[in-house]
Design a protein around this nucleic acid. Structure first.
Lengths: 106, 106
DNA sequence: GCAGCAGTTCGACCGCGATCGAACACGTAT
DNA sequence: ATACGTGTTCGATCGCGGTCGAACTGCTGC
């Protein structure tokens, strides 16, 4: 790696596809991750406890990143993940807020 | 059929599951249907043109209905389908508006 | 009755995605 | 150098969902 800082490939805000975003969100594990990120701001992949293997966890983070939902910052041995709130709010105003406000079914 | 009027089984507003709703929305064909219903108010299944077979079309309407996104009213040989706007707005405030306002990717 | 139209259901096909263990890559601490 | 911790990648399995044609149901019109 030439530069010390390294971010992973993520789609431009303009290019975010609604279907891909919805697809990424339509999974309980990933919805958990998104909620946790919304609450914690930025978190290491492993810091969010899911009841799946490392490989599966990594897969879910990849789906979130490639759909444009999250930003990933590489630092040492950790990957710091955060929600792309600004990009999402500008591209799909109100969507994220609506999701995070959703109450569990009664 | 005993009574003339007949509606199909649909989940209660309280019971709508976010994941199921998102899953139902995470498909281009179904997103097209939802947008069309939002624009037209109520439409017959066949009145929305999709580039799929009758069977597939029927499948998509079923997914939308069972996730709680649409209401279906049976009248003669037609099925009139409409968005459950009120239920969705009360269960997931802002979600539908955000979806319908979404612009295509640039 | 019979034909035709609207829509569903059935069975099958097929690809995609969620999942896992194992191997790997990379950074860090000893 | 060795070992460990964090996370990714690979290959495989497996179930689910989108798709179709064909058969079916139910209503309407002739």
């Amino acid at each position: 790696m030439l530069n010390g800082v390294s971010d992973l490939l993520e789609p431009d805000a303009d290019a975010l596809a609604l279907t891909s975003v919805l697809q990424a969100l339509a999974d309980d594990q990933r919805l958990t991750i998104v909620r946790e990120l919304a609450a914690q701001g930025e978190a290491a992949c492993g810091a969010i406890d899911l009841d799946v293997s490392k490989a599966t966890r990594s897969h879910h983070f990849k789906v979130l990143r490639e759909s444009g939902l999250t930003h990933t910052r590489v630092e040492g041995t950790h990957r710091w993940v955060s929600l792309r709130r600004d990009d999402l709010d500008s591209r799909f105003p109100g969507l994220l807020d609506a999701l995070l406000a959703a109450q569990p079914a009664r």
